Amino acid sequence: MARKPLSQLRVKAKPALVIFSVLLLGNILWFIAWLIPNGSKDGGKEVVATIDKTEITRQDWMLEMEQHYGRNTLRDMVNDVVMKKAAKKFKIDVKPAEVDLELALMRSTPEEFSNILKNMSIEQLRNKVYTDIMLNKVLTKDIIIDDKEVEAYYEDNKALYEVPTSYRTNLIVVDSKNKAEAALKELQSGSDFSVLARELSIDTNSANLGGDIGFVTVTQKGFDQNLANALDGIKEGNISQAIKMEDGNYGILKVIEVIPGQSFTFKEMKEHVRVELALEQLTQSVAPESFWDEFNVSWFYGETN
């Protein structure tokens, strides 16, 4: 049975990990925001919700959150610090170009990449990718992969490293040409695209996001081909004319950002492929917690891992 390309595995796994990390970060922020005012004696008795005459206090709420999310949140924070210390100890560095490469590879699956950006900013994503690369390098530091194996994998999967031009796009969909032209007039008069998308667009999913459909490419499966064909002719920051879609509706596109396509050479991909191949050789037991004893970790939950 042929082995599935590593980059596909990585791209499919990363969004779930990233979104999970965002949720953990959100929990941390909730804890901080609500614990800071608790300097007074009665801080824990503050009522945060009432249901008829039943009250839920801040203390009840925080205890429930800690029980459900506290362990994983703290573990994530500890692992982040441990990995940074391990990287420093073993003199492992992550260059900005490596982060750029990972982000470019993620953009090769624009729909999944767009879903990630619904949950975090590009800067937050860069930080997360940086940490992931550092972790993978630390975990694979003692695994040797022959250069011939790395090059053979690259040659067998070269198509994975051809990343097409992607367009960060907003969309308004209406059911007639007259409505599309009326919407265009409003936009030309200064109406905000995202506000108009929420008011007029019959594409419910994007309308709820102010028309944001994330990054798309001209060859993306499942994306209306007539809209895709128009993308290349729209300059960054500009709005299209009314475009008749394959289903008979009319779309208006606004291109927010254009990221040119890239082709990555073996030299550029060598370290990335080496680490991915090395990760395949790891057992499930190898994780950041494996370094806890080395860095004398102790935490609220007692046992270290």
Results as ranks from 00 to 15, higher is better:
1 M>E: 12
2 A>C: 12
3 R>S: 15
3 R>C: 11
4 K>A: 12
5 P>V: 04
8 Q>D: 08
9 L>H: 04
10 R>T: 08
13 A>I: 05
13 A>N: 11
14 K>N: 01
15 P>E: 03
19 I>N: 06
21 S>I: 03
22 V>G: 00
26 G>N: 05
27 N>E: 10
27 N>P: 00
30 W>H: 11
37 P>C: 09
37 P>I: 01
39 G>A: 15
39 G>E: 15
44 G>S: 09
45 K>N: 12
46 E>P: 00
46 E>G: 00
51 I>Q: 13
52 D>E: 10
56 I>C: 07
57 T>Y: 04
60 D>C: 09
63 L>F: 07
65 M>R: 12
67 Q>T: 11
68 H>S: 12
69 Y>N: 11
70 G>R: 05
73 T>W: 03
74 L>A: 10
76 D>L: 03
85 K>W: 04
86 A>T: 13
90 F>V: 07
92 I>R: 07
93 D>K: 15
94 V>Q: 05
97 A>S: 05
101 L>V: 01
102 E>R: 04
106 M>G: 10
108 S>D: 04
109 T>D: 11
110 P>R: 06
111 E>G: 12
113 F>G: 00
121 S>I: 08
123 E>F: 00
126 R>M: 10
127 N>A: 14
127 N>K: 14
128 K>R: 14
131 T>P: 12
134 M>Q: 12
138 V>S: 08
143 I>N: 13
144 I>V: 12
147 D>G: 11
151 E>S: 08
151 E>K: 07
152 A>N: 10
155 E>A: 15
155 E>I: 15
155 E>K: 15
156 D>L: 14
158 K>Y: 06
158 K>W: 08
159 A>Q: 09
160 L>I: 02
162 E>Y: 03
163 V>A: 08
164 P>V: 01
167 Y>H: 09
170 N>H: 14
170 N>W: 04
175 D>M: 10
176 S>F: 07
177 K>R: 04
178 N>A: 00
179 K>T: 09
185 K>N: 11
185 K>S: 13
186 E>G: 08
190 G>L: 00
191 S>M: 10
196 L>W: 02
196 L>S: 03
198 R>F: 06
198 R>C: 03
198 R>I: 09
199 E>N: 11
199 E>P: 01
202 I>K: 01
204 T>G: 15
209 L>H: 07
210 G>E: 06
210 G>P: 03
214 G>T: 05
214 G>C: 08
214 G>V: 01
215 F>N: 06
217 T>M: 05
217 T>H: 01
217 T>W: 01
221 K>F: 04
223 F>L: 09
223 F>H: 08
223 F>A: 11
224 D>H: 04
226 N>G: 04
233 G>A: 15
243 I>R: 06
247 D>F: 03
254 K>I: 10
263 S>H: 02
264 F>A: 02
265 T>L: 07
270 K>W: 02
272 H>F: 03
273 V>M: 04
278 A>E: 13
280 E>H: 09
280 E>C: 10
282 L>N: 00
284 Q>T: 13
285 S>K: 13
289 E>T: 06
294 E>K: 03
297 V>E: 00
298 S>A: 13
300 F>Y: 14
301 Y>M: 03
305 N>R: 15
305 N>V: 14
